[in-house]
Amino acid sequence: MSAHPVLAVEGIDTYYGRSHVLFDLSLEVGAGETVALIGNNGAGKTTTLRSIMGLTPPERGRILFRGEEIQGCKPNEIRRRGVSLVPEDRRIFPSLTVAENVELAAAAGSTTTDVYDRFPVLDDRRDQRAGTLSGGEQQMLAIARGLVGPPTELLLLDEPTEGLAPQIVEDVSEVVEALTDDGITILLVEQNAELALELADRAYVIETGRIVHEAGGDELLHDPEVLETHLGVR
């Protein structure tokens, strides 16, 4: 099994209704790697994660998790196999308390990792309604929720720093690094290319639904052409 990458996306085509969003898209994430997927708004980053998670299944191509095809599976089956999504906009349950959010997610599986050790900020707010948390706290809760329940081998992180203050962005980065240190494989979608490339071992650049570039994180970070043409960074 170790011969397989944790995740292999092979030539998928994904549609929203009639609009064709991903074109013959392929990527791989090896065990323990942190891989970033960067690109402009609307390039197809979120759709890629949704395809992997089974939320918007591809119409063609294969998605292999630890060598097994999962592209026809329902999201709950994919989650139970070990893929976990921390979605864009966090999508925590605002009317439930922090503890209820965590317990609900934990109830889907057996992992009883004490997430409150990892996220002490949540520990103080267990009985607070999730909707009343700050943006950074909500993001921590969303990540915490993604780590409990069925054992998580691959974490799909969608824009974890979006809309957060710089200080908080730093906190989130630290969490991501800590997760990597714990051996969790991460596929990270970020608009903040600089941050993403700092965190990632490797990165893919996506443009209008196609992978247009692949390289080590450092390499991309110092490639002025990539920065300018694909990420609009000067």
């Binding site: 939320l55 709950n76 349950f93 605002p94 109830a107 889907a108 929720r145 329940g149």
Partner: peptide, 23 residues
């Protein structure tokens, strides 16, 4: 717990499915 699951499902069924529950 069932109540919490139902409240969450009412709010965001897709997310609940992605957490591992067969919605």
């Amino acid at each position: 717990n069932v109540g919490v699951l139902l409240q969450a499902t009412a709010h965001d069924p897709e997310m609940v499915d992605a957490l591992g529950f067969d919605v």
